[in-house]
Design a protein around this nucleic acid. Structure first.
Lengths: 157, 157
DNA sequence: GTTCCTGCAAAGGTTTTGCACCATA
DNA sequence: TATGGTGCAAAACCTTTGCAGGAAC
């Protein structure tokens, strides 16, 4: 279990480059809402809701429709640059899929609803072994742990 | 990795008992839509969508509103007898949380959308270790592997 | 100039809520 | 009889789609 290091922003910059390159390669145009979404995702480090991202862009002066944000997020997801996380009774969140393969999973507190991130090597290895041993070709995975966060445990003593 | 054994129905019966007992204990009444939902879940082995379950009940002659099904499913989820699984662009599915703790996770094919189940001891152990080592108290977990199923791999050669 | 992208508005589908009525205890 | 549960209908919510105008190539 490791916490995100300082080179996160480096990875985000690399992600931004990769995303723009992928769009160019596919013949997509630049300069519109889609590019704004990419910039914002890279700047914010991912892990946002669509509506939240749209609001941020509008507050920054860009006139972006929520629909365009969804379109951009869907496209990036299809290319494999973004990961969509669906939690019960919450809008979907979108996270960067970083070029170095680094990723994390989520701890969701059933009491206060807060979410936290973690990563764990043993977990990753277990999944790799499953992938190697079955007919299913594993490309990505979501893991969410539900329970009680440290704060709520402390509050309940 | 093991497949579900024949004692699944035994576990479902135990689940039904546990669910009815939990409701009784909490002072809930029996005999209405809620009980019908429990019976149907136990009979069907879980893993259904709310609307699907409501339809089944209505076809069986019970006049149950979809809203009541949602209410029942939500309550059972709060008690910890049901697990809600949210996949992107699909209605949520509800699965039994069996008394013996047996559970499985999901393989979702990005190509054809089919879902399959698996369970893996190494994965469970990795999660237990995380639980033991952090301030977060893990009570349950979701794992979803995304990729390509055997059929789609074969079709693409 | 052509094509793609976008904003806006409306629709779509799932889930929740309000309310009056009914059934259980 | 009092309370909680239910059905029905409407609302709320997130997300997608249609379409006409505008921007990028």
């Amino acid at each position: 279990m490791t916490s995100a290091p300082d080179n996160q922003s480096v990875a985000a910059v690399a992600w931004r480059e990769a995303a723009l390159a992928a769009l160019r390669e596919r013949g997509h145009r630049t300069g519109g809402a889609r590019t704004a979404v990419i910039e914002r995702l890279a700047a914010g480090g991912g892990c946002v809701e669509a509506e939240e991202l749209a609001r941020d862009l509008r507050q920054a002066g860009d006139q972006v429709a929520t629909a365009s944000v969804y379109r951009a997020l869907t496209l990036l997801g299809e290319i494999g640059l973004l990961h969509r996380i669906a939690l019960p009774s919450a809008p979907a969140r979108f996270e960067l899929v970083l070029p170095d393969g680094a990723h994390h999973h989520h701890l969701v507190c059933a009491n206060c609803g807060s979410t936290d991130a973690f990563s764990d090597e043993a977990l990753e290895q277990a999944i790799q072994k499953i992938s190697a041993r079955t007919a299913f070709e594993v490309r990505s995975h979501d893991i969410t742990l539900h329970g009680r966060c440290a704060a709520c445990r402390a509050a309940a003593q």
